[in-house]
Design a protein around this nucleic acid. Structure first.
Lengths: 203, 203
DNA sequence: GCGTGTGAACTGGTTCACAGCG
DNA sequence: CGCTGTGAACCAGTTCACACGC
């Protein structure tokens, strides 16, 4: 089993490696990666070795090889279908964010409770009313869901996602979602993050 | 010194307590709070006691008293001035999010590199061009900063914030920011969070 | 000799168990 | 007797130190 913080850091590493690959470099050391990510070189090596050894020893990692090695190790070499619910400003900004695709996050459908909004918006993916979440999630074999609705409806959306077979939820709603243990939730409590920062800053 | 995860949870607790206060209840037990937050009752009590004892023993916490106790303990009873840089979709959705104010997060200024955008937008706070970050941050005594710009400019914005005396940064840019150790950074790597979820889900 | 791989020590955060108060 | 407060046990994750391969 791979520790959550490790998965987190490895995901970040992959993103960094992808950027590096574009810049023409071909090899990189854990020390350089440390500089680019803010993690220590120790931690990086250990994280990587959670998935086994990429092979080469002695002189740094082959950038592209490492990226694909990590993707395979994390089982994210294949794109992962994702739906997003809530097409307010936040939802729209996420939909417009073209970086997901590059990372293998394929957003396959958007949902909103307002039929008007669905008709007005034009995005290169299918938009549906919220009551179709379960159905569409199943049909598209979506594995992840993003919740960007007002907090009152967060739980209801989560329930529908779970019913539709969603296995991981990114929650922007400032409320704790009750879901079965087999469903992974990561919360983005933006306001609370700021409060946390405030507390840390005002020692 | 208060552990970061504890500060995090306490911030969430405060938000939950505020909501509870509106609902008319007056007392609550750690077990009930556990149910509402997803933390264990143990953890909640321990977190609270990091700041000392709220007083009453035996039969639950007084909701409002606890909230103010926590705010005082975390030093966030006074509102904290915050600036936001990057007024794209994400930045705008954050500006429009009226929950911050309630939590004592006072957004005092917005910035964008595009003068056009600044003139077009209308928000109830002052908008400035990005080169004024340092100056305005100082003038408004801002303590926190939100970075919602494209990733290329993240570091530059961070530098300006630091120069302006900002002590805590919420970073939505998918790059690691280099800042002095006395500045606290919390990263919201949205795409990477999804990747992490994908990895955790595809065991 | 630089840089990776890995087992062993350490640390800080969480969980537990029980004492103490209403 | 329920629920909080807290010191002690535990554990995961991080840091360290050294062995190994190039």
């Amino acid at each position: 089993m791979i520790p959550t913080p490790t998965a987190n850091r490895l995901a970040h590493l992959i993103a960094v490696l992808d950027r590096l690959a574009l810049s023409g470099e071909s090899k990189i050391s854990s020390a350089k990666l440390a500089d680019l990510t803010g993690f220590t070189a120790h931690t990086i090596r250990k994280d990587i070795n959670c998935l086994g050894s990429p092979g080469e020893n002695g002189s740094g990692y082959e950038i592209e090889a490492l990226a694909t090695f990590l993707r395979k190790g994390l089982n994210i070499a294949q794109p992962i279908n994702t739906i997003i619910v809530g097409l307010g400003r936040l939802g729209q900004s996420l939909l417009a964010y073209r970086n997901f695709e590059k990372q293998g996050i394929k957003i396959v459908a958007g949902f909103d409770s307002s039929l008007n909004k669905i008709e007005q918006l034009s995005f290169p993916i299918a938009l549906h009313p919220s009551y179709e979440i379960e159905e569409v999630a199943k049909a598209t074999k979506a594995e992840l869901g993003i919740i960007a609705v007002p907090s009152e409806s967060g739980q209801k959306v989560a329930d529908r996602m779970v019913a539709g077979g969603i296995k991981g939820i990114l929650n922007f709603t400032p409320t704790f979602l009750k879901v079965p243990g087999c469903v992974n939730v990561r919360n983005f409590y933006v306001a609370e993050e700021l409060l946390t920062l405030a507390a840390l800053v005002r020692v």
